[in-house]
Design a protein around this nucleic acid. Structure first.
Length: 951
RNA sequence: GGGCGUAUAGCUCAGUGGUAGAGCACUGUGUUGACAUCGCAGGGGUCGGGAGUUCAACUCUCUCUACGCCCA
């Protein structure tokens, strides 16, 4: 039953209604057991997060794809869920405790984790509600969480498998330690920032009376981190450095600690840099760690001088003076730390070499240190300087796991779109380092490793299995760490589909054979055109369904490029390792959404645009369309609210066009195939629909979201609304042919339906509303069938309409330039009519009168007197203008056109007279040049004559 | 230091080996009861600079400049 549409379109009034209708009816994953599968997994947002503009982009693109594939009849599955987000979530809960002057360590591990679960229950629905507001058609009935029981089981299995295959191991080496969060983090979670710092130069006195060749009794070293000298274990010089050759193998006595350390030769020391000698602190610097190992120092013997908070602690040799113990590594909150005290003591003892520089007046001044810009590592979550720290952690042999993904991208088995990211991908994957996967947190997947009294390690799925390995009576303690969140999310493409459980053999979709009672309703004249599918009676679950077999590998992954390494690459590694297959054949990477001025959005800058605010203001459809239209491959999107507004206007335009149709008896169409049409305008619009579907399909196949959006936008507004609706208005005038009106109602209703289907992936809410407003439907638009016009339209008909459009545009333009009232109806004469002109004037006089406002149109000579000339295709109309004519204005108009044609003709003439062009250019190009030349020459002739006639 | 990307109309951006398009903004105008969240018409660009390849370059190659991002 069609219903009268309100005169204004109010997005808020329809969005909630349709979303809950879709979700409740199971439309997001209709029962299609025999259909080709199409699968996307959603990048799981942090469970306690909320929707930001980047999510809006990412999810809009995915929803467009999934709705498109669903309309094309596929068994489209969009897997959704949330990520437990170890560090982020634990931080949120800890912050809440802090607000109450409470802290995590006041609780047992179990109590704290319980609090996190409570918070997850409380806030976990926020982002999923927001995704619904955006219109995302995910399969909520199977919503996943990375700490669900089945998912956790998969995580443990992968850990155990990797361990048993020797690809995951425990190792003592330097890690990136975040002293604020007190956990290790991976290389990817470290961000290098350049900050202002200092470069100090010190004297390290040589031991045993040794001197350098130049007589000095010390070696000069320089450092940006003086505090680490408390754990120095060597001084390195380049093996070829003549200045130091004589002292290699000798020793220095460290000031402050009095530690006796060797001078070693190592190529790490750069003779060009500073003095050429560098202090070596293997326990607190990644480069020094390697130097230390080369110098024969075992990691276990490397001195450590910092605790987990990065406060100074006693080294194993007990040489750190008491006054340093407990100091923070450097000045913090206005309190000096070990760095400042080391500098002070060295200066007092005469070991500081001052930095001399000139001040503004040109006078030499002495500073303790040289000011410098220093690349400094920061933790991406905690925001404090990372401390390289020697600990035992679990590592994944990423280099081994990266091999298959690299080969897959090289061979094209996995396509990265846009391709320009491939190089970045290879660059990282080919230089990948062992991945530190253990985290010293409480919230997350606990590492399935148990230790015996003597440190023996047992890795197993459960404590029982570990106990079985260890044997009776061995007391076991479980590793207290949890896994990196990305270790689990790497399994998302398959663990969400039931992996590793073998498919259940139970009855599959018992009602699959339920009667097929569609297609026989009066609406479905074309029986074969029934919708392929319909929603299940209720949402799944469908026990026994083997999702993994059917939906893995997935078909596509869409993500921001910012998580290419964090997530996408690791899914590839996990996919190949665990399933032997790529997780998906295609990876689409989109950019960032930036603020209007191009700056990165950030809370601290206060330039964050809230997508929910935009939805409130313009509607979800407008925001979605904006995202699609702006998404060209490989470029960031700048926020442009005016443009969102423009797409809200587009929605209003469609709304009003539909109201017009309603008021003329145009309603829901009954066929998917284009209706039979005789009238030129109707044939023309059918042809236009056909072209639009083809262009849209091509754009979607290439994932050109901008091209797809623009295609349907232009068709709807510039073709359907601007021309077609105007062309058919005369058909509904009083006294017009009922046969013509009837045909036009059928075609217009059909064309409008095709618009709704094609636009639906981009603007799901308004299209569904209009779909139902136009008449009774057997199924919702979300489950309709993609256009398939299967029509052939006559060239004569489309030429006729193109001719009318050309005529109309030219008449309007001429009137405008001559200052003639746009509404004025004028008589026109066509001295020499082409066949096309003659038949079109015959068939479409009403349209010519209404649009071009020419009536009557006479084929024959015009009476003598002032007139203007207007062309349509090759036909030249003469329009007498006695009384209203402004001869000067018409002369100016013709002169301008003449000048343009003359210029074109000259240019083409030049090209055609160049033998090189005629001989060597493609024949089509030459032919086109000839045609254009003929046309412009003709115009020159015509316009010259017309000007002469004006006098 | 290495890698990648971008420079096209006032703004935000598409684009193709045969001398350029969209949306917004701007100017003029308002005729037909879908729509002023609109219609119609129009102005506006030596496609960052330079060189090369080509009959032909905004499009391909090199180079320079500016900006951005990633990695070290």
């Amino acid at each position: 039953m069609s219903k009268q549409l309100d005169t204004t379109f109010d997005p808020a009034a329809i969005e909630a209604k349709w979303y809950s209708h879709w979700e409740e009816s199971g439309a997001f994953r209709p029962e299609r057991p025999d259909a080709e599968p199409f699968t996307i997994v959603n990048p799981p947002p942090n469970v306690t997060g909320s929707l930001h503009i980047g999510h809006a982009l990412d999810n809009t693109l995915q929803d467009i794809v999934i709705r498109y594939e669903r309309l094309k009849g596929k068994d489209a599955l969009w897997v959704v869920g949330t990520d437990h987000a170890g560090i982020a979530t634990q931080m949120v809960v800890e912050r809440q405790l802090e607000e109450r002057q409470d802290k995590r360590t006041n609780y047992s591990r179990e109590e704290f984790v319980q609090k996190v679960w409570e918070w997850k229950e409380e806030s976990g629905g926020t982002i999923t509600r927001q995704l619904r507001r955006l219109g995302c058609s995910m399969d909520w009935s199977r919503e996943q969480f990375t700490m669900d029981e089945h998912f956790t089981k998969a995580v443990l299995k992968v850990f155990v498998d990797l361990y048993n295959d020797g690809l995951l191991y425990r190792d003592k080496r330097l890690v990136n330690w975040d002293p604020k969060l007190k956990t290790a983090i991976s290389d990817l979670e470290v961000e290098q920032q350049t900050i202002a710092g200092s470069f100090w130069h010190f004297k390290y006195p040589l031991a045993d009376g040794v001197t350098l060749d130049d007589g000095r009794d010390y070696i000069e070293v320089a450092t940006t981190r003086p505090e680490t000298m408390l754990a120095d274990m060597a001084v390195a010089v380049h093996p070829d450095d003549e200045r130091y050759k004589s002292v290699v193998g000798k020793h220095v006595i460290l000031p402050i600690t009095g530690r006796r350390i060797p001078i070693v030769a190592d190529e790490h020391a750069d003779p060009e840099l500073g003095s050429g000698a560098v202090k070596i602190t293997p326990g607190h610097d990644f480069n020094d760690f390697e130097v230390g190992k080369r110098a024969g120092i075992a990691p276990a013997d490397m001195l450590n001088m910092l605790d987990g908070d990065a406060n100074v602690c006693q080294t194993a040799d007990g040489k750190v003076p008491e006054e340093f113990i407990g100091l923070h590594r450097f000045r913090r909150d206005g309190v000096d730390g070990a760095r400042e005290l080391v500098v002070q003591r060295l200066k007092e003892q005469g070991f500081l070499i001052p930095h001399v520089q000139k001040n503004k007046k040109g006078e030499e001044v002495e500073l303790d240190a040289e000011p410098r810009q220093i690349a400094t590592p920061f933790g991406d979550r905690g925001g404090v300087v990372i401390e390289p720290w020697l600990t035992d952690q679990w590592y994944v042999n990423a280099g081994e796991l990266a091999k298959k993904p690299i080969a897959a991208v090289k061979s094209g088995e996995i396509e990265i779109v846009p391709k320009s990211w491939e190089k970045t991908f290879f660059n990282w994957m080919e230089n990948i380092q062992p991945w530190c996967v253990s985290r010293q947190l409480w919230w997350g997947h606990r590492i399935p490793a148990w230790y015996g009294d003597n440190g023996e390690c047992y890795v197993a799925m459960s404590e029982e299995e570990a106990q079985a390995q260890a044997g009776e009576g061995v007391a076991l303690t479980q590793d207290s760490d949890v896994l990196d969140t990305w270790f689990s999310s790497a399994l998302w493409p398959f663990a969400t589909l039931g992996w590793p459980n073998p498919p259940q053999t139970g009855e599959v979709a018992a009602d699959a054979s339920a009667s097929d009672d569609r297609g026989d309703s009066p609406q479905e004249l074309d029986g074969a055109e029934a919708p392929l599918h319909r929603p299940a009676d209720g949402p799944p679950p469908r026990s026994g369904e083997d999702l993994f077999s059917k939906h893995y590998p997935n078909n596509l992954l869409i993500s921001g490029f910012d998580i290419l390494f964090f997530w996408d690459a690791r899914m590839m590694m996990a996919g190949y390792y665990n399933t032997g297959q790529a997780p998906w054949p295609r990876l689409y990477l989109h950019g960032l959404v930036r603020a209007a001025d191009g700056a990165k959005m950030s809370k601290s800058k206060g330039n964050v645009v809230d997508p929910l605010g935009l939805i409130d203001q313009y509607g979800a459809d407008a925001l979605r369309f904006f995202m699609a239209a702006m998404e060209s491959q490989g470029r960031d999107i700048k926020m442009d609210e005016k443009r969102v507004e423009g797409y809200r206007n587009f929605a209003t335009k469609l709304w009003n066009a539909t109201r017009f149709c309603q008021s003329n008896g145009i309603g829901a169409s009954s066929t998917i195939k284009a209706p039979e049409a005789r009238l030129a305008a109707n044939q023309w619009i059918i042809g236009e629909v056909q072209q639009t579907v083809e262009a849209l399909d091509a754009a979607m196949a290439d994932l050109r979201f901008d091209a797809a959006a623009n295609t349907i936008y232009q068709f709807t507004w510039s073709r359907f609304c601007d021309w077609y609706l105007e062309l058919i208005k005369p058909v509904f005038a009083d006294g017009a042919s009922e046969i013509a009106a009837s045909e036009t109602r059928a075609v217009a209703g059909w064309a409008l339906d095709q618009i709704l289907v094609m636009l639906h992936p981009f603007m799901p809410f308004i299209t569904e509303e209009l779909w139902h407003a136009l008449g009774t439907r057997n199924y919702d638009l979300i489950l309709a069938k993609w256009p398939d016009p299967r029509a052939s339209v006559s060239r004569d008909a489309t030429d006729a309409i193109d001719w009318v459009i050309d005529l109309t545009t030219n008449v309007r333009s001429a009137k405008n330039e001559l200052g003639i009232a746009p509404g004025a109806k004028l008589a026109a004469f066509l001295p020499e009519a082409s066949d096309l002109a003659a038949s079109t004037i015959e068939r479409s006089s009403a349209a010519i009168e209404r649009l071009a406002r020419l009536t009557p149109v006479t084929i024959g000579e015009a009476p003598a007197g002032p007139a203007m000339q207007v062309t349509a295709g090759g036909d030249v109309f003469v329009i007498p203008l006695e009384g209203v004519i402004d001869i000067d204005a018409e002369r100016a108009r013709l002169s301008k056109a003449l000048e343009a044609s003359q210029k074109e003709a000259n240019s083409l003439e030049g090209r055609l007279s160049n033998p090189n062009f005629v001989e060597r250019a493609k024949p089509e190009a030459v032919e086109k040049a000839r045609e254009d030349h003929a046309h412009h020459s003709g115009e020159v002739e015509r316009l010259t004559a017309a000007l002469a006639r004006l006098g």
